[in-house]
């Protein structure tokens, strides 16, 4: 599915990552500052690795040796950021459909299905500033899905939410995993939080990223 083998240097910090992931939800687990977000940025094309390559299915996204670097907008990789980053001048519906303007690829489901799945159908006419934190994050997930990505990156999408909101959003993510055939890369530093979601684990520690067994807190 996703194949990563790279080295990336950023000031004094060097990140080395070597792993492959399968379908389902792969958790990127590690303490703050370990390089998890950097890894997502490398996959999304927001950063360019110093050496090595990243492949999704049969597409080479970047290969430093061969001088290949696909621009972020060409990668079809959905990115749900820590903050929802909804477009403030657009309605929820316009936010959801934004990615449709730029691709002919078929999303995993249509607007209505996704709005139902994420329980945001009643919000379609609203503006982002009128939404709660949990609602914003759900819209951001729906927006990423409708852009027809082949891989979805989630960067601590629950971190801005309180415990009750976290508990509210998790079932949506599980439904997403089971109903859409969409692999996900999910960054967190709290393994217990995603125990019900995870299908694979990658540890990120001190600039090293590679496969790890499921941590005890997640069992």
């Amino acid at each position: 599915m996703l194949e990563i083998d790279l080295t990336h240097r950023q000031g004094n910090f060097t990140l080395t990552a070597r792993f492959t992931t399968g379908p389902g939800v792969t958790i990127l687990l590690g303490p703050s500052g370990a390089g998890k977000t950097t890894l997502l940025d490398l996959v999304a094309g927001l950063k360019r690795p110093e050496s090595g390559h990243i492949k999704v299915e049969d597409t080479v996204l970047t290969d430093a040796g061969a001088g290949i670097f696909q621009a972020p907008h060409q990668r079809r990789i959905g990115y749900v950021f820590q903050e929802a980053r909804l477009f403030p001048h657009l309605t929820v519906r316009q936010n959801l459909l934004y990615g449709r303007l730029f691709t002919r690829a078929t999303p995993p489901a249509g607007l209505d299905t996704i709005a139902d799945l994420l329980d945001i159908a009643p919000l379609l006419a609203r503006r982002p500033r009128d939404l709660s934190g949990g609602e914003r994050q759900r819209v951001a997930i729906g927006r990423a899905l409708l852009s027809a990505p082949r891989l979805l990156l989630l960067d601590e999408p629950l971190s801005a939410l309180d415990a009750a909101r976290k508990a509210e959003l998790l079932p949506y993510l599980v439904r997403l995993r089971d109903q859409m055939q969409l692999p996900m890369l999910y960054v967190t530093h709290q393994p217990a939080e995603v125990a019900s979601l995870a299908t694979g684990w990658i540890g990120v520690q001190d600039g090293q990223a590679g496969p790890i067994p499921p941590p005890a807190q997640a069992q």
């Binding site: 621009a71 907008h73 477009f87 403030p88 001048h89 934004y98 303007l101 730029f102 927006r143 990423a144």
Partner: peptide
């Protein structure tokens, strides 16, 4: 970061400028 998000949704730089930067 909003422009970055637009890029991740498939918008090429000129479209980001026209649909996000200019309206804002």
């Amino acid at each position: 970061k909003l422009e970055q998000a637009a890029g991740s949704l498939g918008a090429p730089p000129w479209a980001v400028f026209a649909t996000i930067t200019m309206p804002l």
